[in-house]
Design a binder for these strands. Structure first.
Lengths: 83, 83
DNA sequence: ATCATTCGTTGCGTATACGCAATAGGCCAT
DNA sequence: ATGGCCTATTGCGTATACGCAACGAATGAT
C-alpha cells in the first residue's frame, strides 16, 4: 500500500482540491480519492504533484507510513526520537 | 508523457528483466512494456523500482526527456555543456 | 435565511495497467 | 545442431485509475 501526504502539502499551500486538480490536470474528485487512499495515482500524476509542491516524489508518496509531523519537526515534550 | 531510464539502471546492476521483475513483484513482460514506454507504471511500482536501484523516483522517471549519459557525465570532445 | 465554497460519496462509463500463456528471434554455449 | 537465456510481441482476461454528473452536508459570509 502507498501512503501519501498530499492533504498536508495542499493545506500548507492553501490550495483547494479544485485548484490543485487544475494545476496537475485532473478532476477535483480524483484528488480527493487519492488523498484518502481510495486509489493511488499513476507515476505521471505523482511526478506532477511532486513538481507542483516542489518536493521529490518520496516526500509525497511512500511505501511505508509517514511519521507524524511532530516527530519529524523534533518534538521534545512527549519523548519521541530523542529521548 | 513520462520518460524513464530503467534499462540504464538495470544494465548497470546487471539484472535481467526477469530478475528485476521478481525484485519488485511484477511480471517480466511488465518491465519490458514499461522500459519501452508502452505503458507507464503505477506510483507504487515506480517507488519500488526506485527503491530497488537506490535512487529517487525522479532519477528513474521524468516528465521531460533525460539528457544522454555523455552530457551528464561531462563530455568534452564534442562540445556539449562546457564549451 | 440565502448563497458560495469546500468536501464526501455514489454511479456509470472508458482507458489502461497488469497477469498469464504462447510464440518467435537473437545470442551463446555445448 | 540442439538447448538455454534473453528479449519482443500478441491475445485475452481482470483490476483499477480516471472523467463526468449528481447529490448531500458543513462551513462561512452577506
Amino acid at each position: 500500500m502507498v501512503h501519501n501526504r498530499i492533504s498536508l502539502f495542499r493545506a500548507e499551500k492553501g490550495l483547494s482540491r479544485k485548484e490543485l486538480a487544475a494545476a496537475v490536470g485532473v478532476n477535483p474528485q480524483t484528488i480527493g480519492f487519492i488523498e484518502r487512499g481510495d486509489y493511488q495515482p499513476s507515476c505521471e500524476l505523482a511526478l506532477k504533484l511532486a513538481q507542483t509542491f516542489g518536493v521529490p516524489v518520496e516526500a509525497l508518496f511512500s511505501l511505508s507510513p509517514f511519521p507524524p509531523l511532530s516527530e519529524q519537526l523534533g518534538a521534545r515534550s512527549q519523548g519521541a526520537t530523542n529521548a
